[in-house]
Simulated scan of single mutants.
Amino acid sequence: MSLPEIVSRERWRAAREELRRKEQAVERARAALGAERRRLPMAEVADEYVFEGGDGKATLLDLFGDRAQLVVHHFMFAPEQEAGCPCCAAFLDQIGPLAHLRARDTAFAAVSLAPFTRLLPFKARMGWTVPWYSSSPGDFNRDFEATVDRAGAPAERPGLSCFLRDGDRIFHTYSVYDDALDGIGALWGLLDLTALGPRPHGDGRLRLHDEYDH
């Protein structure tokens, strides 16, 4: 295992300050990018998508509750699977209570292709309380590019989509997919601060949180 160089505390502080100046430049660039993201145009959602959740059928508008914004986690869970994607599960593990989002007028929900009867026992197994809906058999996943064509066959990919409402009108404001989610959740961000970084441990495979042996 390759470890960092061992130096005096004074040399460490000097190196840390040099790196901090670079971090501050990245933070300024990230803030500017966030402002640019919020200036993106938005597209009105014309279709009335129908989902199935804990309270039965729900529309996309229902997923907002009484909030102005909605963040949807495109959780990879195919209809034929018994368990969800470990990477998506690791992301959802980091969400926790939704009070902070709701206090900022934002709702959150996970959406998957699997029927709700498959989602419910897996949600209970994972101990999650976030709202989770099945989009099957509708076109929501494909319309928002969580289902794409790869090698001539449909394939799922993880993602987040953001929506804004104005009365009963809904607008799609942003989406992000695949590895770009790593910079949003806390897991990889925390590991990236450490000396060893997000390197594999053991066999390196990301598991569901109840499948680790330590």
Rank of each mutant, 00 (worst) to 15 (best):
G54F: 14
E27G: 11
A78D: 03
D149R: 11
W128Y: 12
A15R: 09
V176N: 00
F144I: 03
R157M: 14
A14Q: 15
D139C: 12
R169W: 09
I95V: 05
R118F: 05
L33I: 06
P158I: 03
W188T: 02
L181F: 00
R16M: 06
L40S: 14
R11Y: 02
G138N: 11
D192K: 12
P86L: 02
Q24C: 03
S112Q: 03
Y133R: 03
R169H: 06
D203T: 06
F75V: 00
H74I: 04
E211Q: 12
D143R: 06
T147W: 00
L19C: 08
L187P: 03
L19N: 14
Y177Q: 08
I170D: 03
M126G: 01
S2D: 07
S2T: 13
G183A: 10
C87I: 05
R38I: 00
Q69R: 11
S136D: 13
R39L: 14
L206N: 06
R169G: 04
L40P: 01
E10Q: 11
E36A: 15
R30S: 09
V45E: 02
A89D: 02
D168S: 04
P121Y: 11
V45K: 10
R21I: 15
R20E: 13
M42C: 07
P158M: 04
R118E: 06
A99K: 11
P115W: 01
D213A: 11
D192G: 02
F75Q: 06
W132L: 07
P198W: 11
A14G: 11
C162K: 04
D178V: 15
